[in-house]
Nucleic acid binder design. Sequence first.
DNA 1: AATCTGGTGTCACCCACTGCCGCTCGTCAA
DNA 2: TTGACGAGCGGCAGTGGGTGACACCAGATT
Lengths: 195, 195
Amino acid sequence: MHDTRTAGETSTRDRLEAAALTLFEQHGFDAVTTEQIAAAAGVSTRTFFRHFPTKIDALLGDIDARTLEFALRLHRQPPDLGLNEALIAAITEEEAEATGASMLPADLVRARVLRGTPSLADEIRTYEAKLERHIAEWIGQRTGHDADDFRIRVAAGAYVAARRVVVEEWQRSGGTAPVVDLARRSLETVHVTIT
Amino acid sequence: MHDTRTAGETSTRDRLEAAALTLFEQHGFDAVTTEQIAAAAGVSTRTFFRHFPTKIDALLGDIDARTLEFALRLHRQPPDLGLNEALIAAITEEEAEATGASMLPADLVRARVLRGTPSLADEIRTYEAKLERHIAEWIGQRTGHDADDFRIRVAAGAYVAARRVVVEEWQRSGGTAPVVDLARRSLETVHVTIT
DNA sequence: AATCTGGTGTCACCCACTGCCGCTCGTCAA
DNA sequence: TTGACGAGCGGCAGTGGGTGACACCAGATT
C-alpha cells in the first residue's frame, strides 16, 4: 500500500515512538506500560505490537540499522588505514554526525532514558553481539583471515568493549569529552595486533 | 530456621533446580514453563519464584557467586605476576577445577542448554557487567589507579571480552582445547597495558 | 502452653506479548 | 461502476513470567 499521508500528518509508528519517548522520560522505562503508550498515540495496544516487536524497541528505534551503519562506516575507511586508526576514524565520524545538524532530540532522550535505567543499560549489551559479528567480519576481510578465527573474534570482542567504554565515558562527560582523544587513549590501553 | 533435612532428603530449591535442568535439556529453555518446573518439583509456581527470582536463574544457579569466585581467584594470584599472567592463571585454575572431580553433571547440562539456546547465549552478556566491575577493581588495586578510571574500565572490558571468547572457543572444542593456550593466544592478540 | 519463624499453598493480579477474526478504506482491474 | 484485494487497525481471548497479600502449618524458642 502506498503511503497516503499528506503534509502535517504523522504515521502511527512515528506517533507511537514519540509517545513512548515522552512517557519514558517522564516516568521512567519500567513505570510505563505498552497500554499507556498506545493510548497516548491514540491506538490499541495490539497496534503497538504491530509496529514494535517489544517495548524496548520503542525506545531503541531501529538499533539494528544503526549497528549496521557503524559496520558500513568501518568498511568505508580507506584501506591504507590500520585497524586501530580505522576504528578511531569510524567512532569519530559517528560522533560528528551525532552532534551535527542531524542530531535529533529523540536521540538525546534515548540516551537519557538509557542512562536513567541501569538495568536497561546492562541489557543493552545483548545487542553488542551483532555488532561484534559485524566487526569480526570487517577485521577478517582486512586481514585476510576467517571472521570465525579465534584471534579475530578476540580482537572484535576487545574492539566492541573499547567502543562501548568510549561511548560510556563520552556520555558521562555530557558529550563534552573529545571522542577522538577517548578512542585514541582506549586503543593505547588495549592494543590489538593480528599476526 | 535450621536445616531440618536428614540424609536422603533434598531441599525444595535443589529439587526445583534439578527439575528445571532436566526439563530444559529435554524440551529446550523456551518450551518449558515455570509451572511445569514447579509441578515436576512438587511445589506451586509461587514457591518456584520464592527460590529463583527469574526462570533464567533456575538455569544459571548462583551466577553471581561464580563471577565473584572468579574475581577472588584473580585477587589470590601472586602479586609479582603481571596482569596478563594473573588472568591466564585464573582462567586456567577455573577450568582445572571445572574439569576436575568437582565438575558436576549439572554444569554440563547448563553448558549444553546455553549452547542449545542462542538467544540465551546473547542474553548472558548482561551478566558480564558485574564481572567487568569486579575486574576493574582488581586492576585498579594492582596498578594503583581508581577502578573508575577510564583506561582501567577499557582494560576491564577488553579482559572480559577476551575471557568470554576463550570460554566460547573452549566450549566449541568440546572442552578439548587447552585453555592455557587459548588464554595466552587471546592476550597476545589483545595487549593490555596500563601506563 | 504461648509464641515465633520460615517455608509453603492459594488467590488475585499486573503486564508483555500473540493468534484470530472481522471491519474499513483506499487501489486497481474488469 | 462494481467487485476483488490488501494494508492497517480494533477487539478479544489467551499464555506465560512475575508479584503482593494472607493464611496455614511445623519445628524451634521461651
